[in-house]
Nucleic acid binder design. Structure first.
Lengths: 148, 148
DNA sequence: CTTGATGCAAAATATTTGCATGCTC
DNA sequence: GAGCATGCAAATATTTTGCATCAAG
């Protein structure tokens, strides 16, 4: 995982490049995602930010706007599955895919070199300029199989 | 692609098995998905059904309920990407993954044996009982790269 | 007939937008 | 100071639910 300082630098660089402003709110949202390991809804992220500092009120609209912004710049990625809506996580991790348990919702991250290579080959075949790729394997995790 | 009659048979079998009823609405929704090749929002599917027969009014709530039902039985699958919400398509196709263009929204389906095999190996490794898996490669399609 | 299914409308959620005001740069 | 960003509340959009009624089995 990258250092927070690097992430922050990258963020300010991107903002500057696009004539956008660096604000306390934007930083807080990025930081909340950095500090919490996992996948969260806009609502949850909003709560993180508000809880981290009672005197600091961030509007939910700002969270949505900022997540959209962060996703566009790939600093943050989203995943969605089943009934649950979109969930966000910090990008710039080593690329990884997800195993998702349909019963308990556990998400396990993994990477596989062979799959990565095949994905690139497929994008080439269809003349796609690949900007991202995701893979989800859904099923029952070991625990839930046992408990069942 | 499977025959519609097979799909229908499978559907009635599953309904019976679970003590559920076969209704005109449920059939119409399944049929709409069979007849339209692609990925559609609940709203779009609702429109398909209503347009197919003016005198036949199906509530949007029924569409949501039926899609949930169909997805649970794997007769229908969903995919979601970017700003757009969940989109549904007929399941029971040969399994396939998706290439999605971020500019024009085009979705191309593909399959890759190597990836399929790796997915199974990974599920085994983490002791997951895999029930489904999906892969999305997102980027710019050939046309949009040119137009850009 | 019994029980699940439907349509409708209302409720609950989720997301976006307009606008006056506040903050970066 | 100029102009983007914010919070708020209102407007939309999306999805779920309660309930009287309908219809499949």
């Amino acid at each position: 995982m990258v250092e927070y300082s690097f992430l922050l630098e990258e963020f300010t660089r991107l903002l500057k490049k696009n004539g956008l402003k660096f604000t306390r709110q934007r930083e807080a949202i990025l930081k909340a995602l950095y500090e919490h390991d996992g996948h969260f809804s806009p609502e949850e992220i909003h709560r993180f930010v508000c809880e981290s500092d009672d005197s600091f009120n961030v509007g939910i609209a700002t969270v949505y706007r900022t997540l959209t912004l962060l996703e566009e710049t790939d600093l943050v990625e989203s995943i969605s599955f089943g009934k649950d809506g979109k969930k966000y996580e910090i990008g710039l991790k080593k690329h990884h895919d997800h195993l998702i348990c349909t019963r308990c919702g556990t998400i396990i991250e993994f990477t596989d070199e062979i799959i990565e290579a095949r994905q690139e080959a497929i994008a080439r075949k269809y003349r796609f300029k690949m900007t991202d790729h995701t893979m989800k394997i859904v099923g029952l995790c070991a625990d839930c199989q046992r408990r069942h």
